[in-house]
Design a protein around this nucleic acid. Structure first.
Lengths: 122, 122
DNA sequence: TTACATTAAATGCCATTGCATGAAACTCCA
DNA sequence: TGGAGTTTCATGCAATGGCATTTAATGTAA
């Protein structure tokens, strides 16, 4: 139990740090940004901000800001939901799709490296 | 691989959040503070800051500040190493030992809850 | 001894996060 | 209709963390 926690803690630290470096240097994305982008791509239709919130390990406020950053970078678009104008839809742009497509192999390589299953070179 | 990462990510988020709440509310400690305190207690003799750095998932600067906070709270003492006056030793105080002793069951309970092995009530 | 490189820890600075709160839109019931 | 309560997202604020740098002490070589 404590052992599991140790494992989670050290794995998380290692992977997070490596992801931050690799995604940041090569694609200008933070781990949260990539995670959110990834969710949106996989969903591949309009998505309420709130739905996103459930699938992502971020508070609502943090998510709001990540999406704001992504929009500022032109990777996603935010627009108000017509039927319920409190809600906000997020959808991916072409640039966002491209960026995600580029970044995905990097993420995979880092994870493979950290989890050591496949000794992929980053 | 991606699955493992998902597991690590969600477990980490859940446990970290729960620890932050429980340790904070009941013992006035953050997760990092508890982790550092725990290391020091288990080592149970003078410890160089740098040695601590290896065992803890924090950068050197973050560790420096955590120790500063702990000292300010009277839970540890910092003092310069005589043989190499760049180095700093950290040792636990009685108050620190007491605080750790109180907080340990809380940590265990949270971990048990999150990892679900023993359905301990917090 | 002096000058330069290296090491340990602290600190300035900035980015990200969560909590609490705010603002706008919606629901529901009298 | 209208007013209270709720929901959704955005934002103010403070805490925490990492990187880069600084300061002080040590090691090394001329």
């Amino acid at each position: 139990m404590v052992g599991t926690w140790q494992y989670v803690l050290s794995t998380h630290a290692k992977a997070m740090c490596a992801l931050e470096r690799a995604l940041g240097e090569r694609h200008g994305l933070g781990p949260s940004e990539f995670e959110v982008l990834d969710r949106i791509v996989r969903h591949d239709r309009q998505l309420r901000l709130q739905e996103l919130c459930d699938g992502v390990h971020l508070s609502q406020s943090a998510l709001s800001r990540v999406v704001a950053r992504l929009e500022k970078a032109g990777l996603v678009v935010r627009h108000v939901c017509d039927s319920d104008r409190r809600g906000v839809f997020v959808s991916i742009t072409d640039a966002g799709r491209v960026r995600h497509h580029e970044a995905l192999p990097t993420q995979r390589a880092v994870l493979a490296e950290v989890f050591g299953d496949t000794p992929a070179r980053i």
